[in-house]
Design a protein around this nucleic acid. Structure first.
Length: 209
DNA sequence: CCCTGATTCGC
DNA sequence: GCGAATCAGG
């Protein structure tokens, strides 16, 4: 395969739309992500000029799990290669299962072997994230609801580096667990929860300040 | 381990 | 110019 005008155009288009090199490579076909990246550089468009260029504003949870995520903080003097945070990711949302039946907690419960985490919750705990219909994109919220139905429901101790750490339920009760679905690249949460946790600031009131 | 883009360098 | 291999990082 060679870089025909069409293919280059598509490359440029997708790149500027924020698609990843691997995604673009897949779309183009016949090339690897390396090829795409190489081309991108040769074309001199390593910097993605997109309409939406902004910081992300975390809008959610302070999970019981310590989260070192330090967001925002616009750098005063920024070089080109400085702030290259990931941009908004395309949201395919191929969630096909509108399961009508309530899939609560049907299965056998032989999980908790030694103890039963329960009553040890100091009263005045900071309210758990619980993504209430705050100012969250209804679509993303709907997706989250779906996802949560299929959550792994992991306990704190079962969490790993690549399980979604989004808390679900009330920590003060027995039905509390963590999402546990596979996280996406470095993020602490799965795709769905990331989309709820990190919103483009453009989504809401644009305080001109 | 998964993924991301960046760079190098033989072709 | 091309892109695999490698590097650097989340």
């Amino acid at each position: 395969m060679s870089w025909t005008d069409e293919r280059v155009d598509l490359l440029k288009k997708m790149w500027n739309e924020g698609h990843s090199a691997s995604t673009i490579a897949k779309e183009l076909g016949g090339v690897t992500r390396n090829a795409v990246i190489g081309k991108v550089h040769r074309l001199g468009l390593s910097n993605r000029n997109g309409p939406e260029t902004a910081a992300e504003a975390p809008a959610a949870p302070q999970a019981p799990v310590p989260e070192p995520e330090a967001p925002g903080t616009a750098a005063p003097v920024v070089d080109l290669a400085q702030v290259k945070a990931e941009r908004a990711k395309p949201k395919p949302a191929p969630e096909p299962a509108p399961e009508p039946a309530e899939t609560a907690a049907p299965v056998e419960e032989e999980a908790a072997p030694t103890y039963t985490p329960k009553p040890i919750i100091p009263a005045g705990q900071p309210l758990p994230p619980q993504p209430s219909a705050n100012e969250i994109d209804p679509e993303a919220l709907a997706t989250v609801r779906e996802v949560e139905k299929t959550a792994m429901k992991l306990s704190l101790l079962e969490l790993t580096e690549r399980t979604c750490k989004w808390p679900i339920g009330d920590p003060a009760t027995s039905d509390f667990w963590f999402c546990g679905l596979p996280v996406k690249a470095g993020k602490p949460y799965c795709e769905a929860h990331v989309s709820v946790a990190f919103q483009p600031m453009s989504t809401r009131r644009d305080r001109k300040r």
